[in-house]
Design a protein around this nucleic acid. Structure first.
Lengths: 240, 240
DNA sequence: GTCGCAAGAAACATCGGACGTCTTGCCGCT
DNA sequence: AGCGGCAAGACGTCCGATGTTTCTTGCGAC
């Protein structure tokens, strides 16, 4: 048990026991270091680790604060981890994404607001225009794809689900997918699937929404199997 | 962008680009600090953060190594995050757990080995003996509960799923659940549900296994609603 | 009395060095 | 050849000093 672990566990304990509340400011480095019985250097290592985990937030010249502890913030490092996965494990990550986003669509169908439906429609209309144009602004297509899925996840009523979907469908994941798909013109097919999902959401039909979403993501996986990434398992192979 | 972020991003980049491979040793602190253009202190903060994220592993007197990057290791910090959630968000976390473990049981039904079925049977037999005894070794019941679910998750063929189930059903989560349930004698009912799950797995019946598992976890949630935890939302309330 | 600016204090950011502790492996002894 | 001790290497920890940012406060002009 290193000094840094003392810091991490100590701060975690203080939060769990209500000694520190979300948004509250921590004691200054010197005092906290003394309280936990470590030097300032060790304290800073622990605080920094908690900062990267999204639990603390330090502001130079001000102080160190406990974050809101929102799931969206706390699950962000998970996306970081997903990015590190080799392409060999990618199918497994995407299988989870399919499960979660399927449920996400099912839940959103019952709860999504007319306003959100309008935003989604606006996005798909823009995608429609881009697809009719050449050259296509592929970057913007990816942005729209991400935004569309995000709107759905945000209306599930479950912030944990929304956070996990966000982490599993990170920018890196999307780029990895599109990288191998952009040649086939699958973006047109994908766009049609998005429209089908939106139609089910508009009808507030949970089961249809779930099926449409699952079908959409399965389609993406199929394309991936037909056109595997060049660098398969670059990170999981044996060391030379 | 702090120096520490430079370190985190730098190491992440080195891993993504294949410059560092799983199990490989990093340059010594002094050299790496110089390469990244930071002091040794800042380097240590970044390395420590990556260590807590399960990406690096430092051994005193030896060196710093890239971990295997296994999902089981990388998803462990997520359990840490789940533990920090207030009881108010607990229902949302458990809803995700229900989704994932339902799918977990469905997948495992097709793939689980006879050996694993035997281990599960052995566990449930032990639970049976404990339930007939007084006083009951409640700690051991929790251990068995965790082990039973873990066996199922391990046979889904999807390590990502297994890792996430592990994170969502951490020891802390289990204790939080059992804390409010131990009075009602629900452990007997829970045991019956476990047996039903095992029966479906033995029959290699995916849909039954999924339903039995989902039903089991819904039962736990129901009990929680009937007997809410005393300290609801201790971490999400306004600051005084 | 109020507004604005400047000086100071407070707190984190970063750095460099020194010393302790542990691991590893070489080298000499048996 | 085997064993044991010793030295080098590498991380662990601490300390002090300096830079940078933010917030506060007090003074003076309007």
């Amino acid at each position: 048990m290193s000094r840094t672990d003392d810091v991490v566990n100590g701060v975690k304990r203080m939060i769990l026991e209500g000694e520190l509340r979300p948004g509250e400011r921590l004691p200054i480095e010197k005092d906290l270091a003394e309280t936990l019985g470590v030097s300032r250097g060790s304290l800073r290592e622990g605080v920094r680790a908690l900062t990267i985990l999204g639990i603390l937030d330090t502001r130079q010249g001000d102080g160190t604060y406990v974050t809101s502890l929102d799931l969206s913030r706390l699950l962000a490092p998970m996306g970081f981890v997903v990015d590190l996965q080799g392409d060999g494990q990618f199918q497994h990550v995407h299988a989870i994404r399919r499960m979660l986003e399927g449920e996400s669509a099912r839940l959103a169908a019952s709860r999504i607001t007319d306003e959100a439906l309008g935003e989604a429609k606006t996005l798909l209309d823009e995608a429609e225009r881009i697809l009719d144009k050449t050259p296509q602004e592929h970057e913007r297509i990816i942005e729209i794809d991400i935004a569309f899925h995000r709107i759905i996840a945000a209306h599930t009523g479950n912030p944990v689900l929304a956070g996990m979907v966000e982490a599993l469908a990170s920018r890196t994941v999307r780029e990895r997918l599109w990288r191998s798909l952009r040649e086939d013109g699958v973006d047109r097919r994908t766009h049609g699937e998005h429209i089908a999902i939106l139609r089910a959401l508009r009808a507030h039909d949970p089961e249809s929404a779930r099926i449409r979403m699952t079908n959409h993501l399965l389609g993406v996986e199929d394309s991936l199997l037909d056109h595997p990434l060049e660098s398969d398992k670059p990170l999981t192979g044996p060391i030379d």
